[in-house]
Amino acid sequence: MTFGNPMRIVGKRPDTAGPNFAARWDDFCSSGDPVCADGVNAVTHVAYAVDGDAEKGAKFAAEHVLAYKF
């Protein structure tokens, strides 16, 4: 999981990580985030914990852990 990933600006997103990682990686970036979206609202970069994205990320991670076959 990444939140406010600065590599997005240069095109490094989960779908470019290769087949081993792309399906198991999610990347959250708010539209106004100046770090990952070239936005101008710095508050969005520190709001991932309260804007619902952290909960979505936790759910995504939990689903993948529970689906893993040992």
Rank of each mutant, 00 (worst) to 15 (best):
L66T: 05
N41I: 15
Y68F: 14
R13L: 07
V35W: 04
M7C: 09
V50M: 08
V65S: 00
F70H: 11
C29I: 02
P6Q: 08
G11H: 10
A67N: 10
F21D: 01
A42I: 15
K12R: 14
Y48I: 08
A58W: 07
V40S: 12
A42G: 07
G39I: 02
K12V: 15
F70L: 15
D26R: 11
D15A: 14
G4C: 00
A47E: 10
V46G: 14
G4M: 02
S31M: 06
C36T: 00
W25C: 06
P14C: 14
M1A: 06
A23V: 03
K69I: 08
N41H: 07
N5V: 02
D53P: 03
R13I: 13
R13M: 07
A58H: 10
I9C: 09
N20K: 13
T2V: 06
V10G: 09
A42H: 05
V40P: 00
D51Q: 04
V35P: 00
M1H: 01
K56S: 08
K12N: 08
G18H: 10
G4F: 01
F70T: 13
D15Y: 06
G39Q: 02
G52Q: 08
C36G: 03
D53W: 11
A17F: 13
I9P: 00
N41V: 15
A58G: 08
P14M: 08
R8A: 05
D38M: 11
C29G: 01
C29A: 03
A37H: 13
A54M: 13
A62T: 11
V46A: 12
R24W: 05
N41C: 05
R13Q: 06
T2R: 05
A47D: 13
V10P: 00
D51T: 04
D33S: 08
M7P: 00
V43T: 12
G32I: 11
Y48Q: 02
V46M: 13
V35H: 01
A17W: 10
G18N: 06
K56L: 10
G4K: 00
N5C: 04
V43I: 15
V43Q: 13
D26P: 01
V50K: 09
F60C: 04
Y68T: 13
R24G: 08
K56M: 14
G32P: 03
R24F: 14
I9H: 03
A22Y: 05
I9G: 06
M1F: 09
D15C: 04
D38G: 14
F60T: 01
A62V: 14
V10R: 10
D33M: 04
C36M: 09
F3W: 05
T2H: 03
K59A: 13
R8W: 02
S31L: 10
M1W: 03
V10T: 09
A58L: 13
V10H: 03
A22Q: 09
A49V: 12
R13C: 02
A67D: 10
D27W: 01
E55R: 11
L66R: 06
A61H: 03
K56D: 08
V46F: 14
S31C: 00
T16A: 10
D53R: 14
S31Q: 09
